[in-house]
Design a protein around this nucleic acid. Structure first.
Lengths: 302, 302
DNA sequence: TCATTCTTTGAAGCAGATCTGAACGATTAC
DNA sequence: GTAATCGTTCAGATCTGCTTCAAAGAATGA
């Protein structure tokens, strides 16, 4: 028996509740004949008699009671599926798979998940760490539903492509320089003022080019004295007077408690790093995805 | 959505495994056309899109993955039902409801259930205590599958009726009399020798008449001096010299440790009490029921 | 005991759904 | 650019299930 029929199981269940074929037919808006046929059909499929005559009515056999237990479980499961799908349609259930770069996970995704748990308990988020390029591949392949990536420029919100992108956060880049540096107290610090300094390049992946890009936009080519993947290492080098660095305000907040480092805002044409959320074209219409997007937005303000 | 179709869920599951409509169709021995139609049909029923185009293939949506989890559970449940029904057909699964008189439960049913648990773990027994008359009503109404009752005569094993009866045990009745009674040492004790003794009638239900019936069969009318429902009370009265009594050997084994009571076998035309198992006509062919019957038989020999 | 009534079951006809086969649009590989 | 692959759509054929009608079995009442 490989081809199960839910309707037959429902008929069996109703027969068990009502006790007679006729009453079952009334409840299910069928004729007694149809009920009888379906049940004998089911019995033939399972290979075991389900009904036996008892006076002018029928009685369920042991096999029928056995089958009934499973039928109840199956029908209950289907009702749950129904309810969850209804919730899904309203954006109150479902799973959203998020691909995010490493530092975004604790800074954005985790707070968003936490907020989501309160506001939309039915929505679950599955996180997968992925750098920008990979994240877009995953997004295109359908392995994630939402990708978080970094970029130096805000994306043109092109609607014609395969993705829809929105900027979650435009984090300004501040300059980290030694506390006793002559420029540490300048009134209006501009990037060009640091043209002759030794620079410490940051980060991994696409981020490693951000310092060079920003400096070139300011009109000079920076001298790459050092480079490091983590912000803490970079700030340590700054503190030691080994150079200056561009640090996203989000990452460098408080300079990790290093008193020898001065964080200075840039006065003009301040470079920013953009945290971009991308979904497949059309997916932003999904209520579930849009709830996750809203939660991520909220996390940028916390 | 109230009308679920298992076949559609299987198609969705296979599509998830194989990844393409064509491969799914091959596995399920269908045409890609049919697969496509069934899936779009399912999506329409659910009210949420399940597939979206991805290149020249399709990808499952979040709703599809949500539905898939439930589909897996449902299909697994159905496979279990299938397995259990197959086991049921072989008599290795199922539930047998037994109606039994009170003293049969510890003496016969419990040992049988214990033995059954080892030999046929899939079979479960549901016990319901019922006196003889009630047990047969329950059996006729289909509320139990097997009835245990007591009778003074072995049933004629009539096959034409509604029930099939078999004698599980023909327990001889012994005479309990005070140890110092003159007849306590007679060589061949017959019931007629006790015609002038005061009798203690036993038991409840149909059993209360057994003493009278046996004595009348022996040619005299017993004097009912006392009566009690429990064998222990009866033996206490015998020990006190208040009368003699007929006691089933099974019930009176060891005379409950009363040294003042002598248990004597009857020499001739010894009356017996019969423990009878009855099933509805035809039910003895059920492997499950016959396994329980065999276990009950085995319990009579232990 | 007989008739009535209720229940279930069976046969024939019909309606709906599903499957097949071919054609089309779109995408990928060579 | 061309050919092959994939998914979908449409029309026709087939199948399953439902309804109507009819009959048989079993319980209730007189």
């Amino acid at each position: 028996m490989t081809e199960w029929d839910i309707k037959k199981l429902q008929i069996l269940r109703t027969l068990n509740e009502r006790g007679t074929v006729t009453a079952t037919a009334q409840v299910l808006l069928m004729t007694p004949s149809a009920v009888s046929q379906q049940l004998s059909n089911l019995a033939k499929q399972v290979g075991v008699p389900l009904l036996e005559a008892h006076g002018r009515r029928v009685r369920l056999t042991g096999a029928a009671r056995l089958l009934l237990r499973h039928a109840d479980a199956v029908l209950a499961q289907l009702e749950r599926a129904d309810a969850e799908l209804a919730a899904y349609a309203k954006g109150e259930a479902g799973e959203v798979r998020v691909g995010a770069f490493a530092t975004a996970v604790p800074a954005l995704v985790v707070p968003a998940v936490r907020a989501l748990r309160g506001a939309h308990p039915g929505i679950s988020v599955r996180v997968r760490e992925a750098e920008a390029g990979e994240a877009y591949d995953l997004l295109a392949a359908g392995d994630v539903d939402l990708a978080l990536s970094l970029a130096a420029q805000a994306p043109r919100e092109f609607e014609g492509g395969r993705f829809t992108q929105v900027t979650l956060l435009a984090d300004p880049l501040d300059v980290a320089l030694p506390r006793d540096h002559p420029l540490a107290r300048t009134a209006a610090l501009r990037l060009a003022d640091l043209a002759s300094e030794p620079w410490i390049f940051g980060g991994s992946g696409p981020w490693s080019e951000i310092t060079r890009t920003a400096c070139e936009a300011a009109g000079f080519v920076p001298e790459q004295a050092h480079s490091a993947a983590g912000w803490e290492a970079i700030l340590a080098m700054v503190e030691a007077g080994m150079g200056v660095a561009l640090v996203p305000r989000m990452a460098g907040a408080g300079a990790f408690g290093r008193s020898g480092v001065a964080m200075r805002e840039l006065a003009a044409d301040r470079p920013r790093r953009h945290v971009i959320a991308a979904v497949r074209r059309g997916a932003e219409a999904s209520p579930t995805v849009s709830h996750v997007l809203a939660a991520l937005r909220g996390a940028t303000r916390a």
